[in-house]
């Protein structure tokens, strides 16, 4: 999978310029940077929601011309629909995306089972019939991850998905995401401002600068997998985080 952007501008302000980013198929890439550095623009470009004014974006070798359909997205807010049960929330993408859309009504039971399996995978066994307001923030975010993955996307785009959670829940969800990724093997682009999160989860961390947004440094994280949370306290890990931090403060000067 190749994502290459030469530049893009939106509404008079150049949000992203000269941004080159390659993510291998099945890789876990994290993008970190100061706020307002065009991380969200990057998300929208990669999924085809925004067309670049210059340059080329390719997913799976094919140029992105419109919504890519093979991407799953999750954001800081779970954005669940309060009138749908957890299961029906997870099933929402299947009602939209082809070929499931056409088959959905007839094979509802089969799809429901699939949603339940995915929910079990993130530790939400037996919550399928509940409504979003009955769940905690962390559980809602798990549901949101399931919704992003139900149509088996090749690419998962995450925009600060854990930013609104408390520290413990966040670490729990790191592990959930780590396990899902290890198990299913999709490509991930994780946009975050949490350096520990980026270092813990990703293969490669890309540092972005602000206005115009571009990748100023890429660092491979060669910590062995599977990584346990304890790795966060090892000197190697701490060095990586320090290194990333100093690069971001350089960018902010």
């Amino acid at each position: 999978m190749t994502l290459t952007y030469a530049g893009a501008s939106g509404g008079g302000v150049t949000a992203v310029q000269g941004l080159d980013l390659n993510v291998e198929r099945g890789a876990f890439a994290a993008v970190v940077g100061p706020s307002g550095c065009g991380k969200s623009t990057l998300m929208k470009l990669a999924t085809g929601l925004v067309r670049p004014t210059a340059g080329r974006i390719a997913v799976d070798e094919a140029a992105v011309e419109g919504p890519v359909k093979i991407a799953g997205m999750a954001f800081q807010n779970a954005n669940l629909l309060p009138w749908r049960t957890i299961r029906d929330n997870v099933l929402l993408p299947l009602e939209i995306v082809e070929p499931h859309r056409r088959r959905f009504r007839r094979n509802k039971a089969e799809y429901a089972e699939r949603a339940d399996r995915l929910l079990a995978l993130v530790g939400l066994d037996g919550f399928a019939e509940r409504f979003p307001w009955e769940l905690s923030g962390g559980m809602q975010q798990r549901t949101s991850l399931c919704r992003a993955l139900i149509h088996e996307p090749a690419l998962l785009m995450l925009d600060e998905p854990f930013a609104a959670l408390d520290a413990f829940t966040r670490e729990e969800l790191w592990c959930v995401l780590r396990d899902l990724w290890a198990r299913i093997g999709f490509t991930v682009v994780l946009v975050t401002h949490d350096l520990r999160e980026a270092a813990f989860l990703a293969d490669t961390v890309h540092v972005m600068s602000a206005r115009p947004g571009r990748i100023v440094a890429s660092r491979a994280i060669d910590l062995p997998r599977p990584r346990e949370l304890d790795v966060c306290f090892e000197p190697e890990f701490v060095d990586i985080v320090h290194d990333l931090r100093s690069r971001i403060s350089e960018v902010r000067q």
Partner: peptide, 20 residues
């Protein structure tokens, strides 16, 4: 953001109106 999620999947305006 919810609109983005659905539009990235190829949802048309009508889909978004009906589902959300």
């Amino acid at each position: 953001e919810l609109e983005d999620v659905l539009r990235a999947l190829g949802a048309r305006k009508l889909d978004i109106i009906l589902k959300v």
